[in-house]
């Protein structure tokens, strides 16, 4: 029983991070139609910035949220306004836009990664913050990990409420469901898409900040997270933001279970789920 609880809680701990990351990608891919393979680079930037602020200035990792979040938002917003909007304007069809924007985000991946390598070097970094064991149902967890889950849930729920209740949030959901119709209601689609891109980047950076509290960080840490985010977005249903959040928790639980049985098979299990999903229910658990 204790091991079972341990596996479940462990799954939620990592799943909370997946949920945030996937929610971010869901905004960029599900709404703005950019399969942003540089998503993980924003996670990396958030993580390394938090590491720098902590080690150089002793700034509490949670406070670096105030830096990473807005900075990543601005970067994502400007990127959409400049790069992706131009690609959108020159693409004759949605299919062409998807492939061209994918290529552009590949380029971006390498640019950001190399800039980070110059800025931070290739070494693996880490710091110790709240790394004290806490006993939960008889199983030991790091306090930093529990804090991570708490933060992920708060950010996830706050964002969900923003989407559900506010005028801009509703416009984002409307644009995800039918962007032409949203435009006919008076929604400025280009700014909504840029907002989505900005929020996606901000969520990635926040996730990176949380990851840096528990795991080692390097300039090349991003890609595995990008892949996980893609799997979760498909798992949760393309364009469904609550679906991405749930999907993240589900994938975390599965990962935790597989890790418990055979740690080396975790990634294999993720790919297997991905492949099965594409074959059986490509619309995802909450997809249309």
């Amino acid at each position: 029983m204790e091991t079972f609880l341990g596996v479940v809680i462990g799954g939620l701990l990592i799943g909370g991070l997946y949920a945030l990351i996937a929610m971010g990608l869901s905004l960029q891919y599900g709404v703005a139609r950019v399969l942003n393979v540089s998503h993980g680079e924003f996670i990396m930037l958030g993580a390394l910035t938090t590491w720098s602020l902590y080690t150089a200035f002793h700034i509490n990792p949670l406070l670096s949220l105030a830096v990473c979040g807005p900075a990543a938002f601005a970067l994502g917003y400007v990127l959409h306004r400049t790069v992706y909007r131009r690609i959108l304007a020159t693409s004759p069809s949605p299919g062409v836009f998807e492939s061209n924007s994918l290529l552009a985000s590949f380029g971006l991946l390498f640019v950001i990664q190399n800039v980070a390598l110059i800025a931070w070097g290739a070494n693996t970094r880490g710091y110790s913050y709240l790394a004290v064991p806490v006993s939960l149902f008889g199983v030991l967890f790091g306090a930093n990990q529990l804090l991570t889950l708490g933060c992920a849930l708060v950010v996830g729920v706050a964002f969900y409420v923003f989407l559900a209740r506010t005028r801009v949030g509703k416009a984002i959901r409307a644009a995800a469901q039918d962007s032409t119709s949203a435009a006919l209601m008076g929604v400025n689609i280009n700014s909504v898409l840029a907002l989505c891109f900005g929020f996606g980047a901000a969520l990635a950076a926040i996730a990176g900040m949380l990851i840096s509290m528990c795991y080692p960080v390097t300039p090349v840490m991003g890609i595995p997270y990008t892949i996980i985010a893609m799997i979760v977005v498909v798992l949760g249903g393309l364009g469904s933001i609550p679906g991405s959040f749930l999907g993240g928790l589900v994938l975390g639980l599965i990962g935790s279970l597989v890790t418990y049985i055979e740690p080396s098979l975790t990634l294999v299990a993720y790919y297997l789920i991905f492949a099965l999903l594409l074959l059986v229910k490509p619309t995802g658990i909450m997809g249309r």
């Binding site: 509703k170 959901r173 409307a174 469901q177 039918d178 032409t180 119709s181 949203a182 435009a183 006919l184 209601m185 008076g186 929604v187 400025n188 689609i189 280009n190 469904s240 249309r288």
Partner: peptide
């Protein structure tokens, strides 16, 4: 003008087929 700016002028529409937001 882009569509949203036309709407701001005071023109609304029922598009062909309704085009509702299905999940709202």
């Amino acid at each position: 003008l882009p569509p949203h700016a036309v709407v701001d002028q005071g023109i609304s529409q029922v598009p062909e087929g309704g085009r509702l937001f299905p999940d709202m």
